[in-house]
Amino acid sequence: MTVTRRMTPPERYHFGVSVRPLLVPKHDPCGVLRDGELWIASRTPEGPATLHLTCTAGELVATGHGPGAAWIVDRADAIAGLRDDLTGFTELAASNPLVHRLARTFAGVRLPATGQIFPRLLRAILEQKVTGKEAHRAYRAICRHLGEPAPGPVDLVLPPDPAAIAATPYWTFHPFGVEQRRTQTLLRAATVAARLDECTGAAEATRRMTALPGIGPWTAAEVVRYAFGDPDAVSVGDFHIPNTVAWALAGEARGTDERMLELLEPFRGHRGRVCDLFALGGIGAPKFGPRMPIRSFARF
């Protein structure tokens, strides 16, 4: 089954930067972004699907493949960030010269919303307390091991079925570089994935996720930012973001979560968007001391 839809993006829309966060950097077995085209595989309520998005000559074209083609194409505008609501942000950004400049520079970047919790939760759990390289390496290994071929003409795999993850013993994940603590969190999340999918908004999803042992505000924010396109989601507990915010907004080289939230309060409603703008603008606090080492739990 193939379904196509044509849309008109907003002026100055930047397709590549908007959809890039949907994929794991460098290589994602479930999606690929190249030459102005996005291919991304998904498990929809109507069955497996692969979405193909292209943006040329001021037109965004969405094509869905597979049994879930109609469902994924119906959400294509949200996945591309076209439902991102910037109401009130221009006025908030004007209160700070740096935020104002970054908002103008990256005015074409939109926040995507996939409408699906578990695929992003899988990635967020794997990213807990480790380097990005470690987490992404584990993500690729798990997707290749538990994923299934996705529909469509591109060689992709579907994100792992939560039921398949829940039925997998924890020691299976050890060679993928995931220790028992994160694995047990992942197994708990997979067991209640269907209940999480019933959530209708970021607040409800955050409450349900943080009720699970091993999932805190950082993990929940990383999920709802892209599952629901929540522009106010702040990754409290992040290793770098409090320092970045403190440096960008107060010239302080180091910051705590409490100080970060205090500085972001004038931007409530778009606090996560402000953090994203700092990342897009390459804003970072001065670095001191050694970097976190890259480890391999598979060798322990």
Rank of each mutant, 00 (worst) to 15 (best):
R6Q: 09
M7I: 15
P9H: 07
E11N: 02
Y13L: 05
Y13K: 00
F15S: 14
S18P: 14
V19W: 11
P21F: 02
D28F: 05
P29I: 01
G31A: 03
L38I: 05
I40M: 12
T44C: 00
E46Y: 13
E46G: 13
L51M: 10
L60K: 03
G66Q: 06
P67Q: 01
P67C: 00
A69P: 15
V73P: 13
A78G: 07
I79C: 01
L82F: 13
R83Q: 08
T90N: 04
T90R: 07
A93L: 01
A94M: 11
A94W: 13
S95Y: 02
P97N: 02
L98C: 06
V99P: 10
R101N: 07
A107D: 14
A113G: 09
G115Q: 10
P119G: 04
E127G: 12
K129P: 10
V130T: 10
G132R: 05
E134P: 15
E134M: 13
A135S: 11
A138G: 14
Y139A: 04
A141V: 12
L156D: 02
D161Q: 08
A163Y: 13
T168I: 01
W171A: 09
F173D: 00
F176E: 06
G177F: 10
E179Q: 15
T185D: 04
T185V: 05
A189E: 09
T191D: 14
A193G: 09
L196S: 08
D197V: 01
R207Q: 15
M209C: 01
M209V: 03
G214W: 14
I215G: 09
P217I: 04
V223S: 02
V224M: 00
Y226P: 14
A233G: 05
A233D: 09
F239E: 13
V245R: 00
W247N: 05
E258N: 06
R273N: 07
R273Q: 10
V274S: 11
V274G: 11
L277F: 03
A279P: 00
L280R: 05
G284W: 04
P286H: 00
P290I: 03
P290E: 03
M292L: 15
M292F: 15
F297R: 08
F297W: 12
R299E: 13
